[in-house]
Design a protein around this nucleic acid. Sequence first.
RNA 1: GGUCCCAUCGUCUAGUGGCCUAGGAUACUGGCCUCUCACGCCAGAGACACGGGUUCGAAUCCCGUUGGGACUACCA
Length: 472
Amino acid sequence: MEPIITRFAPSPTGYLHIGGARTALFNWLFARHHRGVFILRIEDTDLERSTEESIKAILDAMEWLGMDWDQGPYYQTARLELYREYVQRLLGSGHAYWCECSPEEVERRRQEALKAGRKPKYDGRCRDKGLGPGPGRVVRFRCPQAGTTVLNDLIKGPIEFDNAELDDLVLLRSDGMPTYNFAVVVDDVSMGITHVIRGDDHVNNTPRQILLYHALGAPLPRFAHVPMILGQDRTRLSKRHGATSVMAYKDMGFLPEALVNYLVRLGWSYGDQEIFSRDELIEKFDLSRVGSSAAVFDMEKLLWLNAHYIREKPAAELRDLVKPFVRALNLPEKDDVFLERAVATLQPRSRTLKEMAEALRFYVADEVAYDEQAARKFLTPEMLRPFQMLIQRLETLDGFSEEALEKIFRDLAEELGVKLGKIAQPVRVALTGVTASPGLFEIIDILGKKVVIHRLHKACAFIQKRMTSDPK
RNA sequence: GGUCCCAUCGUCUAGUGGCCUAGGAUACUGGCCUCUCACGCCAGAGACACGGGUUCGAAUCCCGUUGGGACUACCA
């Protein structure tokens, strides 16, 4: 059996966005599942909008998501000779012709037709003029005007189009560049693509492309049009829905495995399973399980998945991943052993690396800043004595261990006749500045005797200062 | 406007004529665990867009309506 060849063909006119990433993922997964070939092709024929920067951004995002390609990246601008050859073939076989209509003229006639209630398509006035090449001229495809073209889509099933709806699309622009619909076909034919998996915003382009395959005498690939990803308001996902670029998710502290899992699961399912490792995805991915309706992007579920992967990941890896985020907060650097222990306590409490870095603040900062409300509620005069007692006991404690620490607290609470929480919360505020944190004993253990005692002293000083300035 | 696509809890989805008094996940609510917050566990609420058919039987098949989306370029 011939190998399966898929491709991802972004145009470098911006960053790799969520929708494109999912399309790429489906192509990549399909190829990997069938032990086929995955090709990366850059569709840069739009000279106006293509940028070097975008190409780099797309490549970076592909790499971050772990999608490796077997061939390419190919650049359409480096294949111009090939398109011209194919144009000549089509011209020679009578499937294409030169057209001298200017864009303005065509547009004007389009508007008129629209106003008159006719189809706003090219009227084919240059079809039989027998024109040759010349400045300002384009090559158009002589599109069959009768009959129907059917697209047997792997996801949507058979879709029939009336050829009369199609018009003579431009193949070669007046600047000598091929148009998208032509270049894709030439590339897909010449690269031997067996499966064209792309967004369903291309469904309406497909009949013209099929007609081009026919004109070229080339075998048809299989087509699979995957539904779009929508924003909360159910319109095509775009900037105004928030972050749409893949790398923006990296910057927000998402793990690539979470984004991959989320994106693949959006529009594809495998029974009730939600969590998939990369290998499982490759093993189980199948076009037949791709749904046919558009899906709304849901940040909450992505966050849940990200939290899951953060919990699962070894603390040592997370420690390295969170470092850039800690640095971004201008927090001091700590040694790896310390940081890793701190990170481990935050794993079940962080949904993103960014959240984790923020939660790391009290661990690594030199001084803690008290949350105003927390301080007012828990750093009260009656805590002075328990704090002092605690300092004393902690000082005499040799080796810190969570068990020993817990005993000290429980004994103290008992002696004072209060519940553990009555002491724990104020101490938590003294150590972290806030009322929510990892377990008190693990915090103390990690922070170390010196820092803990220092912060308790500081809290006492704070309370005393408050008593004099705000007696009440 | 025309062409095409789509339609199950708020969201992602399972479901391919009887296993469905519609399952899972997320989000939400309540409880348990507990030094706080999370994690975890348990429970609750929540959907087959509407109307016609076909059939002994329909979320599943057909038609229509409504709603949504995409395309309609010398962009991709």
